[in-house]
Amino acid sequence: MDNDEAKFILRAYRPSGADAADPKFAEALAQAKHDPSLAHWLEKEQALDRAVAGKLQAVAVPSDLRESILVGAKVSASPSWWRSASFKMALAACFIVAIGLAFNYSLARRRAAINQVAQVAIEDVLHGHHGNRGEAVAQLENVLENASFHLSNGAMPVNLTALESNGCRTLQVSGSNVAEICFARSGRYYHLYVMDRMGGMSTKPRIFEHDGARAAAWTDEHNSYVVATTASAAELKNIL
């Protein structure tokens, strides 16, 4: 082993001495004992590492962080995730969509000979005009219907306040305002529900199923989301 290789290894040697018994460092440490220039280098390297480590370990931590973690965990986290508010909301979303879609598809099946105009009308009820549809809603719909956009990638362009003030359909679920936007992908219809960010939810989507409908729930740094559909689980995952 030459000194360059020894230095490469020893740069990973913790200045606390915690790695003293690690065989990975044995040969390099032994070399430093016999080579004064390497020993001098190691001494300076470790001294500087100790100084930097000491400073970083002294960086102030917000005084309320500990309490926030403990109280927030009690309020938000539950080992029984199926009791959580987020799961109830997703289930409610599934239920709402399932009831609405089931009724209309039953209608379509009963009227086998329905003409083209009636079919358009059913689709309009399912996916169209819920209240006034301002610019914020239209812009979001354009994004959601873009096949290359993945909903849970952390870049959802949503302004919840703008959506609600623009007349986007708003539900009340478990005491929270939830804005609802409908969109289509590859001929399948989806309903996106947007609400203020809920603590304790994962940034990775969780999939729920109920009565033939499915919902995915996740959160980002601003909002929490549920998207519900009667499309397949694979189709749902594909848009996430």
């Binding site: 926030s68 927030g72 080992p79 740094e221």
Partner: peptide
């Protein structure tokens, strides 16, 4: 950083 730290403990809790 506070958010991320809290989120980590929430993930642990679940």
């Amino acid at each position: 950083a506070c958010d991320l730290t809290q989120q980590t403990f929430y993930v642990w809790a679940t």
